[in-house]
Design a protein around this nucleic acid. Sequence first.
DNA 1: TATGAATGAGCCTTCATTCAT
DNA 2: CATGAATGAAGGCTCATTCAT
Lengths: 218, 218, 218, 218
Amino acid sequence: MARNTSNRQEPRSRDPERTKGEILEAALSEFAANGYGGARIQAIAQRAGCNPRLIYHYFGSKDDLYLAALRSIYAELRSRENELNLEASSPCDAVLKLAEFTFDFFSSNPAFVSITRSENLLDGRFVHQLPEISELSNPLIRKLDGVLKRGARAGEIRPGIDAMQLYVSMVALSAHHINAMHTLSATFGTDLSSTDWRKARRTHVVELIAAAVAHRES
Amino acid sequence: MARNTSNRQEPRSRDPERTKGEILEAALSEFAANGYGGARIQAIAQRAGCNPRLIYHYFGSKDDLYLAALRSIYAELRSRENELNLEASSPCDAVLKLAEFTFDFFSSNPAFVSITRSENLLDGRFVHQLPEISELSNPLIRKLDGVLKRGARAGEIRPGIDAMQLYVSMVALSAHHINAMHTLSATFGTDLSSTDWRKARRTHVVELIAAAVAHRES
Amino acid sequence: MARNTSNRQEPRSRDPERTKGEILEAALSEFAANGYGGARIQAIAQRAGCNPRLIYHYFGSKDDLYLAALRSIYAELRSRENELNLEASSPCDAVLKLAEFTFDFFSSNPAFVSITRSENLLDGRFVHQLPEISELSNPLIRKLDGVLKRGARAGEIRPGIDAMQLYVSMVALSAHHINAMHTLSATFGTDLSSTDWRKARRTHVVELIAAAVAHRES
Amino acid sequence: MARNTSNRQEPRSRDPERTKGEILEAALSEFAANGYGGARIQAIAQRAGCNPRLIYHYFGSKDDLYLAALRSIYAELRSRENELNLEASSPCDAVLKLAEFTFDFFSSNPAFVSITRSENLLDGRFVHQLPEISELSNPLIRKLDGVLKRGARAGEIRPGIDAMQLYVSMVALSAHHINAMHTLSATFGTDLSSTDWRKARRTHVVELIAAAVAHRES
DNA sequence: TATGAATGAGCCTTCATTCAT
DNA sequence: CATGAATGAAGGCTCATTCAT
């Protein structure tokens, strides 16, 4: 007859910061797995182990939660890029370092690729609401531009390479096979997610970039 | 009292084949613009100027309509690729020809990019149901492999390049800036859809591929 | 074992006009009983014996359904007023005829009173969207004005009475005890909805109006 | 490092009575503006500048808060009516004095009209829980009855007028144009809230009551 | 005294789909 | 061939309210 407390389920943590973090983490997974439209607020709540209502308490709306998730993955990228120290290396090494970093970042952050994909499906509806993002990559492009010019003067690097184009290429070569993994896998009849294929891809991409920037005697 | 037929509104084309084609066309647009989940069966009906019910009449379900759309864009790709004649050119020219074709195909078929993107969001749920797709690219890869080997023997092309990796790179370099147009545009603060940027991108990509496959004197 | 048809519930009438009418009727009751905010779309569906979804099929939204209900009660009022023939009576008789009609209209159309009350709670949010309503009462006021002037000239009616003020008074005297029935009943400890009270009220109101417009020898 | 108390924000007034009063005041506004169903407990908290939880602390529930608001507006009315001194005037003057008082009370207490309206929308659900209200108006009716009888004997006032009916009429004539302001305004295309209209209405109402009770030579 | 955290119930609305004509 | 009528399931969001501090 006694109503012991152990009978009812744990009423959550009473730790707002942690709860908020768990919700964001869950949102990241759900949005990555299903896109904005396909994501279910209830699924996020379940992943976070909390009441759906709580999501509104902390984030206000699905849109705002999505914006928070978007902000978070870009913040992660920015924080990682800041750790790069391109100036310290020789021009060729710096380019390869960036190429490797870019490749590895997308490899180990599939959520970035997924959410970015969803965002593009929506014609960038949300990313355009985050002005801070546009300030993210400009410094990197400037640094890369410096490296290319330095390398060109030193005869190490083919002159005339546009930094932004090169960076877009690095991103393309590093992300597209993840982005389009399923269609490419189906097309080629090969599993592009296998460790072997990914390792081969990394080698190929780095070689391709190296060859592309190298100075050639003609 | 008689209910003569002239009283009711014109009941469409009475041309089943044409109606079916219009629906497929409309579906292509809608799926490309909104993805699978975001596409509305009613919107497709409106685009096609017909009754939603008719879609079920001709295609059975939203899934089947989507499959038809998927099939159609891959058929288009296959048909274009068949027009290529890589064997007729010198190895270097053949590679560049393929690069240019690939770039131009994605540029002029944004629906392919969009629907492909949606498909990957769904983890390839539908593309895996179309076995004919896997037979599409194998011939191309084989041909490209032949070209690369021929070029290597002739000393024109750097040996050891994997055909599939190279082709994935071509696709990546040609499609990713379209696929991720909005996020990249927001990131760089540049409009990646402008004609100028696209033209510069084409030049960059072709040069990059050329440099990557070129044989270098050690 | 046989699944006879009488087992499943009647799948509705397949008579759109009738269905639409039933929904409107149900909406009228529900809105009258609970106001706009308190009305439940599902309750309306149940009253109408149909699926909630059907309401959206025919009316689009709760707002639009409410607008339709509003329109309908005013149309009813207009149609009744048009049957009045004030010009045919002597001025005094015409005024009393209008007073009696007004009293009886509100008595027998409690939905009008209720929905009107709800509308005022919303600061007339919806009534302002129905421009046709403003054209409803102007003719009546003009007619009443004519009657009053005619009566004044004939020495039957006290001169200087403003037609609109008088009409507002008729409405007030006829509607307010319905509108505020519960608070007044509670205040006076009397049931204002009883037949007896209503009958006495009618007599009182008509007498009051009669005395108010009568020409007095001073 | 020490977390001194001056760091956290001022925890409100620490004056329970005042806080309670502010909440009641806020509730009055919110209920008047939105009715019972439309009122938001959080909006009341914001108006009162306090935490929603505090409302529960002081008043228990939304219902109880509403009851308190209801009690308060009727207490205000009772207190005002008690200041009237009908016996001191001549019968006619007394009637007009009451008419003017009633008109002015509703004019200057729109919250009374609004909350009363909301209450009637709810079929008097709450007013029936306040037995003290029914004891409010009985003395007034008795007084008015006395005045009418006195006036009838003196030949000043038409005999046979029922005091309650007359009082209901006064209320109706004074309140209905406020109660139904928006629908009437929309109907007549006139702004019934304008100062001019209200002034003309007052004159009209007083004249109407005067004429209605006046003794006429047959 | 006062407050933020957390919840369960319920509402409007949308969508793909089938029924009957 | 073609269409309007009708439906069940589910989703985002809001609200009053209680728990724990």
